[in-house]
């Protein structure tokens, strides 16, 4: 029972971190209509920034800055936001497809840097000993998991409330207008582009923050955490939840993560060991098909507020 509670807290923390990423994506896509296929890249930038700034000295890479965790998170949001701002600046005056292609490229390059810039990122081995909040209670798993959950809930709630406020502010109304009415966007010209860059940057910053929170939650990161599958999962979460709705983004994350973990556990139990890698790819096929079906039949998702 106690174990189950601890696992529940762990599961919910992981799911809510995805929810945080989905909130960032919802600002970019749901509110502003900007297509980001490189989510994994922005999450990785945040995770690595905070990890490098807060982790203790390591022999073979830069480090030992020993920043406090919160400072690391702040830096993670800022750096990921800056990368997003540059991406947006370079492409948002062009057709929307170019942004998609460029974000895809950003994810490829971030993955490459994570793998190969060993002096900065630790290469394929990643960064270890990332300080975890509440490390002092680590010996009590249940307490530790719930303390972590508390932190994740607090961050998610803060971002959620801030985004709700933002989307009702004049700034949010402009973004919505730009998405709805291409002519208004053209009439606004340069300033329309700057609004979009801002939205894209803030969304990227939230993704970076989520990456940092996750890094400190697990205590260890490696390039493999940030493969295109991550991008894909977050998209599935937002589409299931209902793009345009912050509540839908968080709920969608929890539901899709539950399906993902549940089907994973099921295949692990049912499928013989040598076929498990195959079963895992079938899991991705299923999510891909689901994403397409939602686009075809229920583009508004399942948990979004009615419009």
């Amino acid at each position: 029972m106690i174990d189950l509670l601890g696992y529940g807290a762990f599961f919910l923390s992981t799911a809510l971190i995805f929810g945080l990423i989905a909130l960032g994506l919802n600002l970019q896509w749901g509110l502003t209509g900007l297509f980001n296929v490189g989510i994994a890249g922005f999450v990785a930038v945040g995770a690595y920034t905070s990890a490098v700034l807060t982790s203790p000295d390591a022999a073979d890479r830069v480090g030992g800055f020993d920043w406090p965790i919160l400072a690391g998170w702040l830096a993670a949001s800022l750096v990921a936001g800056a990368v997003a701002a540059f991406t947006g600046y370079a492409t948002l005056r062009l057709k929307s497809d170019y942004l998609a292609i460029t974000t895809f490229g950003v994810a490829v390059v971030v993955q490459l840097v994570a793998l190969n810039a060993q002096g900065l990122t630790g290469g394929p081995f990643g960064v270890a000993f990332i300080p975890r909040p509440f490390a002092s209670v680590q010996s009590d798993p249940v307490l530790f998991n719930f303390a972590n959950l508390g932190v994740v809930v607090a961050v998610t709630l803060a971002v959620y409330l801030a985004l709700e406020r933002l989307s009702r502010s004049p700034w949010g109304r402009v973004l919505r207008a730009l998405r709805e009415d291409e002519r208004a966007a053209i009439a606004l010209g340069k300033s329309a582009q700057s609004y979009r860059v801002q939205a894209f940057a803030v969304g990227g910053g939230i993704m970076g923050l989520a990456g940092a929170v996750q890094a400190h939650f697990i205590g260890f990161i490696a390039p493999d955490n940030y493969l295109p599958t991550l991008t894909f999962e977050v998209w599935a979460m937002l589409m299931v939840g209902g793009s345009g709705s912050n509540r839908g983004a968080v709920l969608g994350a929890v539901v899709v993560w539950a399906i993902w973990v549940g089907s994973g556990a099921l295949t692990a139990a049912v499928v013989p060991g040598d076929l498990q890698a195959r079963a895992a790819s079938l899991q991705i096929v299923a999510i891909g098909v689901m994403l397409c079906l939602i686009l075809l039949w229920r583009p508004q998702g399942f948990f979004g507020a009615r419009k």
């Binding site: 209509g33 297509f35 296929v37 929307s96 497809d97 998609a100 295109p228 599958t229 894909f232 998209w235 890698a277 195959r278 790819s281 079938l282 899991q283 991705i284 096929v285 999510i287 891909g288 098909v289 994403l291 397409c292 686009l295 583009p299």
Partner: peptide, 26 residues
């Protein structure tokens, strides 16, 4: 909505690729 088609191609891409991994392993 052109960008929805892009997104669908992204989902289809993931499914097609993983289907190959399923059939032929990686």
């Amino acid at each position: 909505q052109a960008i929805i088609v892009v997104m669908a191609s992204f989902g289809a891409s993931m499914a097609l690729r993983s289907l190959l991994e399923f059939i032929f392993t990686s």
